[in-house]
């Protein structure tokens, strides 16, 4: 298993487009939150401002990390290396698990970098401005942890969608349209039919909610929302792993 994980890690980091995607997944969210604290009106900055911007940019970070998850599978099909992978490691569950471990750790590391650099540089920017000293925000640490975990979960989701479609454009489209369009439409229709707010049952939205500083009132709580989304991702992953196992390579 260790050998398979090492092999998958080498595979992931030796393709330039993967490295570029990973860098972009850190830089774009950082740019959003750091530019925001730089230009925000001084009177409006409080202890929740910087953490709020960082976790707010987290949704962009996790989507880009999801794209990375997609790429690490689909490029194997588009470049034909999946046959070499499965010839070198005949156990398909092992290949799937090793890939998932690698993209999950990388996803968490990338969101972790966004949190770390965002806090260090963001605090320095705020300190340099004419703002009175700020208290620490009690919700920041759990929200940051949720964001780091989301990096791992969405990476695994991207990988699962990639393994199901085997085709980069359709996998990326699915990954992006799911939270932006499908859950919006389905959630909207369902809330017309039911009095209850059904938004919390939308998996991706629930996952994104877990990163907020201030949680929605009728959600499952931070860890409940994240766990609910993770359960969906696990379900999709099991289907994808089964598909890898059953279909000809």
């Amino acid at each position: 298993m260790i050998a398979t994980i090492r092999s998958e890690w080498i595979k992931l980091r030796t393709v330039r487009s993967n490295v570029t995607t990973a860098i972009v997944a850190v830089l774009i969210p950082l740019a959003i939150s750091l530019l925001s604290v730089t230009f925000m009106g001084e009177n409006n900055i409080d202890s929740g401002t910087l953490p709020g911007f960082i976790v707010g940019s987290g949704s962009v970070a996790v989507l880009l990390i999801g794209v990375l998850g997609v790429l690490c599978v689909t490029q194997e099909y588009s470049q034909g290396t999946i046959r070499l992978t499965l010839a070198a490691t005949p156990s398909r569950p092992r290949v799937y698990l090793a890939k998932a471990v690698v993209v999950a750790l990388l996803g968490a590391a990338l969101t972790g970098l966004v949190v770390l650099i965002g806090n260090v540089v963001g605090s320095a920017i705020i300190d340099a401005r004419d703002v009175p000293a700020l208290d620490s925000n009690p919700d920041a640490a759990p929200a940051f942890l949720a964001m780091i975990l989301m990096g791992a979960v969405v990476a695994v989701l991207g990988m699962a969608i990639g393994a199901l479609t085997r085709n980069p454009p359709s996998a990326i489209t699915t990954l992006v349209l799911w939270p932006l369009l499908v859950e919006g439409i389905v959630g909207g229709l369902l809330s017309l039919a039911f009095d209850d707010d059904v938004a919390r049952w939308m998996p991706f939205q629930s996952g994104l909610n877990s990163m907020f500083l201030e949680l929605p009132e009728d959600g499952f709580g931070r860890w409940g929302s994240l766990g609910y989304f993770a359960a969906w991702v696990l379900f999709v992953s099991l289907i994808a792993e089964r598909s890898l196992k059953r279909r000809d390579a």
Binding site: A3, R6, I10, K11, T14, V15, S17, Q79, L84, T85
Partner: peptide, 17 residues
């Protein structure tokens, strides 16, 4: 073989596996 990988890296991931 992935066209973006070097020959050595291509063999490296196979060897590592």
């Amino acid at each position: 073989a992935h066209s973006g990988r070097t020959a050595r890296n291509h063999l490296r991931w196979m060897a590592a596996s």
